[in-house]
Design a binder for these strands. Structure first.
Lengths: 201, 201, 201, 201
DNA sequence: TATGAATGAGATTTCATTCAT
DNA sequence: AATGAATGAAATCTCATTCAT
């Protein structure tokens, strides 16, 4: 008697996730080209052939990883939308970023290393650009609401800052004071400080 | 008439530079693994065999590129050392960074895409870490001299910011207001502004 | 209530026929190697595993198809045997061939494409050679009875002609005047014409 | 000192021809899918890699073989064009066909086995159809000039006959009386015989 | 110095067949 | 009887490196 449809789906889902997890780890460490399907299969403890039962090519594996990445991004935007207070939004933007760095090292490394090689991952670049634009638009509204004189540039400033924190942190994790930096930033962007800056103009 | 030793060396140097230039362009665009020796040879308009006459492996080519990169870095530190005024040093740090982004796109892209894949370029990573540490130490002295309350974090802050500007700019050059950002930053880190901040503590 | 033995056998027979039909279609269109077991299973709307319940290998499927092919051939010879008049036999040889071309395209295409690759289908080749020889022997008797001066060559002539009609017809069905050719041949090989030729010698 | 351009071209030409010859032999015997690049490389006594230096894919190898095949066909048409006497043209059509069967077994087998699997070789099929049409057009003029009552069908008749001779001959070379058939046909299509037929209408 | 033919190891991919349920 | 996940061998193809000239 064959397995039921549900059982098959369960198996597929698990194995798929298993492959993606193994692939993410390896891609992040050794790069896309530096990781072979063989490597992935071994790490996932399956045969090479089975990997192709789930993803029709190596490219499709990395595509799936990036899709998941931006699905998480979309979720983050939804959370942001649900919050009304701009000071709170600002705080969340900072805290979420640091949380992401702490919990999603591999994802971030992969993202970072690929984003600068658009020929390697055209699809990912497009997704990223789209997400980025949407995010910036939404945050610009927040910065306007906060009363900044030059909200666009202030947003770009903070955006670059947070990205750079990721770069510097992952460049040498043991050397970069991530937590200290979070406190430092939350202080600089606290409600009191912002009001002080805005009113001093 | 045989060429003189000098002429030979001149030719070798030029060909070498030619190969490195072609390789840099391709690596930056298509990645290390995505670029074949054949691609490089074609771009440099030489034969594959000749490339091996100059570099004993593909790895050595990328190593040479990174060496050049950090030689430039060392030169920058020398320039910084020659300047005494801390306000001027700070201004130079910012201006030099923006200048580099504008003039050395490929170098930066290559650097950025490799730095997050340590297994791909162990040697480069080490060089970078060494340079970085030295640079931060020197700059911390500057930030102390400027009178910042928390010079270490303020330096980290500016460092992250400048790195993030690179990330955001190269992510989508047409979309990022690079020049506006430079002016914005030079304003924020002008002598007047710094003195104001420092004195308000 | 369990099914009876007869019902089971009925199901098996139908499924088997179903698989063979699907396989024939695909083999004819995409070739033996170009058709996967998966393709066949999908076309037959069963699972891969079930196909192996019926045929122990892909090879056995094509073997079964060829067996059926030559069973039909044997039936044809039986029909021929039951007819006594040589003029009628000749007419039947021609008409049957054209009928076969019109009704069994896939069978013929498969046969034609395989027969010239003996290494691919040794068993089929042998069966074909055996059938062929038997057929020629029987037909030679007919041609002798018709009074041809050189019955062997006349038979070879007509045999080649009919094979060639198949080749030319299937090469481009819309371009070849199959029906016209049938009429043309039946005329050339009519009783009157044959008597005329035979008597003119 | 590198080889001269001419030397390189000479090498390429020879190796290319070498590969094509080995491939033709194997394809004819074992079929396209039944022959691996490895097989070809071994037969040509080169490495797999080198095969790809000359042909970018297995498909391109078979394409090249078919191209050569139809180039020869074009040459044949040219020869035919240079002859004016229709009786002579007819004789040549027959003699050339038999000559081809005798001297180009592998080419013909390959052609025959592929022509019925259009999905395997779309390009070849197109080339063949084009050649065929052109050839038939030209020959129809010949058959008209010979005075046949139904030139189109008579041409189709002879065309099918010659194709069928190929089929039957290659099906079992030791069994088919090729030379006898040639004499038989040249007799049937001799000037005297044709004039007799044409005038008896 | 210079060329590109040639190699061979290893990568991606396919698929007949087996297996657990 | 029936399913499709899983395997593994073999196929196609790539490319850094070497070699003959």
């Amino acid at each position: 008697m064959p397995r039921s449809k549900e059982q098959f789906e369960e198996i597929r889902k698990k194995t798929k996730e298993n492959i993606l997890k193994a692939a993410l780890k390896l891609f992040a460490k050794k790069g896309y080209h530096g990781t072979s399907i063989n490597d992935i299969a071994k790490a996932a403890k399956i045969s090479k052939g089975l990997a192709y039962n789930y993803f029709e090519s190596k490219q499709k594996i990395i595509d799936a990883i990036f899709e998941e990445y931006f699905e998480e991004g979309a979720q983050f935007i939804e959370i942001m939308d649900s919050i009304k207070d701009p000071y709170e939004k600002l705080r969340l933007m900072i805290e979420f970023t640091f949380k992401y760095y702490e919990e999603n090292e591999e994802q971030w490394l992969l993202y970072a290393s690929f984003i600068f090689q658009p020929e390697v991952l055209k699809k990912g670049k497009k997704l990223a650009a789209k997400f980025n634009q949407k995010y910036l638009e939404k945050m610009e509204e927040v910065f306007k609401a906060l009363g900044f004189k030059n909200p666009k540039m202030e947003l770009r400033f903070l955006g670059a800052l947070l990205d750079g924190v990721g770069v510097d942190y992952f460049f040498d994790k043991s050397f970069f004071p991530l937590n200290e930096m979070k406190i430092f930033l939350l202080e600089k962007y606290s409600k009191e400080e912002i009001m002080r800056i805005v009113n001093s103009n």
